[in-house]
């Protein structure tokens, strides 16, 4: 078993703290916060694709379910947002279990199609069930977020909250990466046949992973809703799922840093490209294509290769 990479965790913590100390501009801070949300989602996608071999093109839907459920339950039953987010996360996990039960028996493009179809259905429902979801324009003026009686409001306070959430997530992900479970999942990804003959219940393992990941994504979505103060179906559509796929693959699948690196680059990219905004979609596609064609292990794989070469020299 590999050792826990304390250096990596420390670097992440350092970057988070430095960001808080150095960036005073609220706009830039908000981009970092969006980057952190994306990083969690892309890492969740990475757990599915890179570790378990599940290609899920419906992650945007779970993110959206988290956001909508948290806002709707908090608003209509008057409960505290933090409890509403937990409930939304739980609900999303259950839903993923119900959806995953029939779909996770499928493989490859059948699974891609099934998850994509699920994402589309949720998107249509968000748009059409206006009495519940506010329709295409979504919800405006979401209540303030409170945690243990403290009200969290504004970029700076939210940054502290989201950054701590992100750090806890990264620590958990790192622990998971070095745990026996990660090996088990990678074994399943490598060969379902072999892992089955070793007595691993593939289906149950996949289903639990899928549900847990959906719950985390939904939790993230709930927090996102309270941070943005505004949600609409467009934020959770098929394109968002594709963006997560791009982030995970550009960063590198099957590693802790992959989703984080990918999310950081692809969230920051549009900000540098405001002059050629129209080309954003083309650039996204090019990034994805170039990574798949030339860097099958993504940027973090490339980085590791370079470091590895220097070390052996």
């Amino acid at each position: 078993m590999k050792k826990i990479n304390y250096l990596f965790l420390f670097t992440i913590l350092l970057i988070l703290v430095l960001t808080k100390l150095l960036i005073k501009n609220e706009y830039y801070l908000s981009i970092v916060i969006f980057g952190l949300f994306n990083a969690i989602n892309a890492s969740c996608f990475n757990i599915l694709l890179g570790y378990t071999g599940i290609i899920s093109l419906g992650q945007g839907a779970f993110y959206g379910i988290g956001a909508y459920c948290a806002v709707i339950t908090a608003a209509s039953y008057g409960i505290s947002p933090s409890i509403a987010i937990l409930m939304a996360s739980f609900f999303s996990g259950i839903l993923a279990f119900v959806v995953g039960y029939p779909t996770l028996r499928l493989h490859g493009h059948y699974l891609a199609m099934a998850t994509l179809g699920f994402g589309m259905i949720i998107y249509v429902f968000m748009n059409e069930m206006a009495f519940l979801t506010g329709g295409p324009s979504g919800f405006l003026d979401i209540n303030k977020f409170t945690l243990l009686g403290m009200s969290i409001y504004g970029e700076s306070e939210f940054y502290i909250f989201v950054a701590s959430m992100f750090f806890v997530f990264v620590v958990m992900f790192e622990l998971f990466d070095k745990s026996f479970l990660a090996y088990k999942l990678k074994f399943i990804k490598e060969s379902e046949f072999a892992s089955k003959s070793f007595g691993i219940n593939i289906f149950r393992t996949k289903l639990l992973t899928f549900s847990l990941v959906a719950a985390i994504t939904a939790f993230n979505g709930g927090v996102y809703a309270y941070y943005a103060g505004f949600i609409s179906p467009v934020s959770f559509n098929f394109h968002y799922s594709i963006q997560l796929l791009t982030m995970a693959i550009v960063g590198g699948v099957g590693s802790v840093s992959g989703g984080i690196v990918g999310a950081a680059i692809l969230t920051a990219l549009p900000e540098f490209m405001t002059a050629i905004e129209d080309y954003e979609m083309v650039l996204y596609g090019l990034f994805l294509a170039v990574t798949i064609i030339f860097l099958p292990e993504g940027l973090s794989g490339l980085f590791k290769k370079i470091v590895g070469k220097n070390a052996s020299n």
């Binding site: 290609i55 490859g108 796929l245 979609m281 083309v282 798949i292």
Partner: peptide, 10 residues
């Protein structure tokens, strides 16, 4: 699958 998704986006 991913490369065709990339191509479609481009």
């Amino acid at each position: 699958i991913t490369v065709t998704i990339a191509a479609a986006t481009i």
